[in-house]
Nucleic acid binder design. Structure first.
Length: 266
DNA sequence: AATATCATCAACCGCGTGGGA
DNA sequence: GTCCCACGCGGTTGATGATAT
């Protein structure tokens, strides 16, 4: 075979490599990834360069920030609507990538599976098991109404203080009535970027509204739109990531907020 | 303190799609 | 019509750090 073939580098990225990718994007925009290798700038595949840009180097990424409870809610609602269309879901979350959403969802699934598994292995109380099943089933039928989700909480769940947390908890894809959310696309004023349009009534809580309002951030849809021909991208490359500290609840806490014996019953 | 287990994240891989030759 | 290439997406894996025992 070919003995001396240019080796393709894999694994963790070095700062110098990042810089090459950033300079490439500044000059040519986020495209022609394979030219980075063909020009001998990096020994990475174009695919790898693109991924690095999209997941780590793009401006305004919330890397290292935990998902807020509102982001979590949006992911759950959109996952119910779209399925595992992580890239699509990510377009609704400012500063999140499809990889972020995917990782978040998968770890959440694992955590839930483990909790349910442990619970079923240890629980022998079939009567309370029945009760919980009935309640959860009832819960899934009481889909949050488009106005005032919390008001529609079933009374059987009155022992659960935080409806929001429960929404995030058990029913997963069964939780949200697909009819609740209506999506359509329209032509964005920022060019050919199809910004999905949400039925805002599906995001009625103040927190959801705040999250959705963040789409007004001028950087948000402008990352690629700013690149036009020779125009260099005037973006704050590698500037410190957007602050995570918006005062939201750490989503990791949401399992902790339930009575520990609650899971024993499931 | 040492070890095991778990959670998170970065990166790779395979596949599908669209556009141009 | 088909082939090739670039790109994008979803699934998966491996490394690393955190936490529990």
């Amino acid at each position: 075979m070919e003995g001396k073939r240019e080796e393709i580098r894999k694994g963790p990225w070095k700062a110098e490599e990042d810089e090459v990718v950033i300079n490439h994007v500044k000059k040519y925009g986020p495209r022609d990834w394979s030219s980075i290798r063909s020009k001998g700038l990096l020994q990475r595949t174009g695919k790898s360069c693109r991924l690095r840009w999209v997941n780590k180097l793009r401006p305004n990424l919330k890397s290292g920030c935990k998902f807020t409870s509102e982001e979590e809610r949006v992911v759950i609602e959109l996952q119910a609507q779209f399925g595992n269309k992580w890239a699509k879901i990510a377009t609704y979350l400012h500063g999140r990538t499809d990889n972020d959403v995917k990782n978040f969802w998968s770890s959440r699934q694992k955590r839930l599976a483990r909790i349910l598994q442990n619970s079923s292995a240890t629980s022998s109380n079939t009567k309370s098991h029945e009760i919980i099943n009935r309640e959860v089933a009832g819960f899934t039928n009481v889909v949050p109404s488009s106005e005032g989700q919390k008001k529609s909480s079933p009374s059987s769940l009155s022992n659960i203080d935080n409806y929001d947390e429960m929404v995030k908890m058990v029913p997963l894809t069964d939780l949200v009535d697909p009819n609740l959310l209506h999506f359509e696309t329209n032509q964005s004023h920022l060019g050919d970027f199809n910004q999905p349009q949400l039925d805002m009534t599906a995001f009625s809580s103040a927190g959801s509204q705040q999250l959705l309002a963040s789409f007004e951030d001028p950087y948000w849809f402008d990352v690629f739109g700013a690149i036009d021909g020779d125009a260099a991208v005037e973006q704050p490359f590698l500037k410190p990531t957007t602050s995570c500290g918006d005062g939201s609840v750490n989503p990791d806490a949401f399992f902790d907020d339930f009575p520990t014996d609650m899971f024993d019953q499931i």
